[in-house]
Computed example of a mutant assay.
Amino acid sequence: MAAEQPEKLAAAEWHFETGSRAPLVVGGRLDPDTQEVTGAIEIPWALSLLATHDPDGVVVGLNDIPRDEWPPLYVHYLFDAMVGIGFYLLAVPVLFLALLRLKRGYAYHRWLLAGILAGGPLSLLAIELGWFYAEVGRQPWILRGYLRVFDAATTNAHVDIAFWLFAGLYAVLGIVCLFVLVRLFRNKPAELELEMRRIIL
């Protein structure tokens, strides 16, 4: 990304000035007028290391890119949220295994099981955030350097009809899926299935 889409990387990290030993910016708040970031955690040299595999590597800043080619700067929050969820999904199993070795009963404590359960929807959210970051971060381009979104966007009236047809199709598929799942698991409690597996094994 640093080589092929430097503006996307710079927007994700609120990196404005081209230079070496660029820090990685985590969180914070941006004043778009002054380009000042407040309340962020800055990890020294980390952006240069990630982008170029060298802590002294040069990372292109947004100020060296024409303003009309900047992605929306809120992609920073999308990227941070995605990475934050990723670290959460790493931390929960590590904590579970640590507690399993140290204090066996604590590994199955209610709060830790809730944390494991939360990992399911959070992982899907991370996937969506990554997708949003990838798509919004390449703005204003459909094909970088060749075709802008403005020039490629379809303005035909039939787009609205197609959208609602697809929305209806997915709604019907969702309802059918729920109906099938309810029928499949009705009167088949999880305890019975676990007992049957135990007998088989």
Rank of each mutant, 00 (worst) to 15 (best):
Q5W: 05
R101G: 15
Y146I: 15
L117R: 12
V26N: 04
P66K: 09
W45Q: 02
L73N: 09
H53P: 00
A46W: 03
P32Q: 01
R21P: 04
F163S: 15
A46T: 07
L100A: 11
L62D: 04
L117N: 07
N63L: 14
L95T: 12
G105V: 09
C177I: 14
A91D: 10
Q5S: 09
G57K: 05
L129Q: 04
W164A: 05
S20R: 08
E17P: 06
G115L: 09
L122Y: 00
I161Q: 14
A2F: 06
V94T: 14
F87Q: 06
G137L: 11
L97E: 07
V60T: 12
G115H: 05
A171D: 06
V26G: 01
D54S: 07
L47M: 10
L192F: 02
A51H: 02
E191C: 05
Y170M: 15
T52W: 01
A22I: 09
L62E: 04
W164I: 14
L90N: 08
T52P: 03
W111M: 15
R67N: 01
V94D: 05
T18L: 14
L165F: 04
F96Q: 12
G19K: 11
W45C: 08
I116E: 02
P32N: 08
G105P: 03
L129S: 05
V83M: 05
L184M: 09
E191D: 08
Y106H: 09
W111C: 11
F185G: 05
A107F: 01
P23L: 14
V25S: 02
L143R: 03
H109P: 07
I200P: 00
L100V: 05
N156W: 03
A11C: 02
D160P: 03
I116R: 12
L124F: 08
N187M: 11
W111Q: 15
G137M: 11
D56W: 02
G105Y: 08
L201Q: 14
P121E: 10
L147P: 14
L30D: 12
L30K: 06
D80Q: 13
E36Q: 12
L24H: 04
C177R: 11
I175M: 09
H109D: 09
E36F: 03
F87T: 06
T155I: 04
M82S: 13
G27R: 03
F179I: 13
Q35K: 11
L47T: 10
E195F: 07
T38P: 00
V149D: 10
I85K: 08
E195C: 03
H76Q: 12
G39L: 08
W164Y: 13
V159R: 12
W14V: 14
L165Y: 13
D54C: 07
I85S: 14
L100R: 12
V172H: 01
W141D: 06
T154S: 11
F179T: 10
D68C: 01
N187C: 06
L100G: 03
H109C: 12
L73W: 02
P23T: 04
G174V: 14
R110I: 15
G145V: 10
A171G: 14
K103A: 06
G105N: 15
D160E: 04
G19F: 04
F87S: 11
R186C: 10
V172S: 07
P6L: 07
A171E: 02
L97V: 13
M1F: 06
G39I: 12
A91V: 12
M1G: 07
G168H: 03
T34N: 06
L97R: 09
E195H: 06
